[in-house]
């Protein structure tokens, strides 16, 4: 089974700093694999097959250590599409490029994480399925594959449906579906030898997709002035209670 895993490279949120004008600065921010995509990589390994990883992004996301990290977790090869136009791409732009790349690489099953660590829109994987015209299921908390079919447990807010679908298909996984493994020495060493294919949008034969969302601003929220009435010591618990008892209305 040819499995394609989509991974997003994002900034380490703890490194993001706030500028005086409340804008965000990524200057000191390290890049990392979006946590939720690690579940997708792990699931691919558990299902077993010919696993390829795919990532798209702006040129700033081109990072040797990240590529090695991704390859040390199970995929046999990695495809990267980088282009200036993809910096800060919206979900539709991303899905469009992923679809073009997926068609070029070929797949039986595409696995995605639930959402990405930055916006957590939980949209891209589903859009990808729709654009490719194949069955797409999201919020999948259990997944097995056999004989050209998948059986997925889709966990919605109030119920669980067990769904059967033929391959090819796109599946978006929940973050509690599995525990991503920690790569060992040998995995990390082997990662350096695996093939990485780099494509531009021209290689995919597509033009930069249109922007579909107008981002007006990205600002840190205005901090509310807080009272900061703080007591010290376990023995002051009653004092705390006295402070808050009128504030808490059950």
């Amino acid at each position: 089974m040819n499995i394609l895993v989509c991974c997003k490279i994002v900034y380490e949120e703890q490194d993001i700093s706030v500028l005086p004008d409340r804008g965000l600065s990524y200057d000191r921010a390290e890049l990392k694999l979006s946590l939720y995509d690690l579940n997708a990589v792990e699931q691919a390994v558990q299902l077993s097959g010919n696993i390829r990883a795919l990532s798209i992004g702006g040129k700033n996301k081109d990072n040797g250590k990240i590529k090695k990290n991704l390859l040390s977790r199970g995929p046999q090869e990695l495809y990267i599409v980088t282009d200036e136009a993809l910096s800060g791409a919206d979900t539709h732009q991303t899905a469009t490029v992923l679809a073009a790349a997926a068609k070029k690489i070929g797949f039986d099953l595409i696995l995605c994480g639930e959402g990405s660590a930055d916006l957590y829109a939980q949209q891209t994987g589903i859009q990808l399925g729709e654009l490719l015209g194949v069955p797409v299921i999201s919020s999948v908390s259990k997944l097995t594959a056999a004989d050209g079919k998948i059986i997925a447990e889709r966990t919605a807010d109030d119920s669980v449906d067990v769904i059967e679908a033929p391959l090819p298909a796109v599946v978006c996984l929940t973050s509690d579906i599995n525990e991503p493994r920690i790569p060992g020495m040998k995995d990390i060493l082997a990662a350096g030898k695996k093939p990485v294919t780099e494509w531009s949008l021209a290689d995919l034969g597509i033009a930069a997709p249109e922007v579909t969302v107008d981002v007006i601003s990205i600002l840190a929220p205005v901090g509310k002035d807080r009272k900061r009435i703080i007591v010290e010591g376990d023995d002051k618990a009653t004092e705390l209670f006295d402070n808050i008892k009128n504030e808490v209305r059950s």
Partner: peptide, 8 residues
Amino acid sequence: GAMAVNGI
């Protein structure tokens, strides 16, 4: 030409 393994 040296290989590096991190996080181990």
